[in-house]
Amino acid sequence: MYRQGSLEVEALAGVDLWVKPGEFVSIMGSSGSGKSTMMNILGCLDKPTKGSYILDGIDISKTPDNKLSVIRNKKIGFVFQSFNLLPKMNALENVELPMVYAGVDKTTRRKKAMDALERVGLTERVKHKPNEMSGGQRQRVAIARALVNDPAVILADEPTGNLDSKSTFEIIDIFRQLNKDGSTIVMVTHEPEVAAFTKRIVTFKDGKKISDEPVEGGNV
């Protein structure tokens, strides 16, 4: 049901962006190019002042602010460059948190969180706190947290920016696997070699979309 609709963005300077269900898009651009604003709008943290953003059939630009948190909770999974896990909670609790806000009962929460952690290949150390884990492990926890509510789209903002190349490859691999399993993923990155693993690259410059093309022979 989540993957029935599509994403439309018209932002910044007449940017028109469609993301279809099941796509794996990377957004590239230097700082100040508008990609962060784009991510904030895609993530329903911000609303476009003009134009519209349709997520999964819902017109976000017309959704009142207090409903946006519910949209973020159910339709979007964030993965950040600095992981953004809550330091006082262990991995499992971090993954459970979106479901706590969704009002899911404890047993279901635990089970779904374990499933999500298994999907990112993290079955051990689930009771460890983030500061007891490596960067790659933390990002896996963050990805598990992002996908645990079955969102319409996973938004990853420089997810490999803080990782070494080995972990970067592992994380990219997880994203590719998730995409293969049907997840829609939008990823901001400034590393061409990371972008090369996605299916489509959109490039921004000065608030404008300057290119939007599929990756040749990339992701298959």
């Binding site: 943290l45 948190s69 159910k74 953004n84 809550l86 948190l97 979106p98």
Partner: peptide, 15 residues
């Protein structure tokens, strides 16, 4: 930061 994280994963203002 924690508040930001909680909000991004769906905490309402009231939460």
């Amino acid at each position: 930061k924690e508040i930001g994280i909680r909000k991004s994963i769906g905490a309402k203002n009231s939460d």
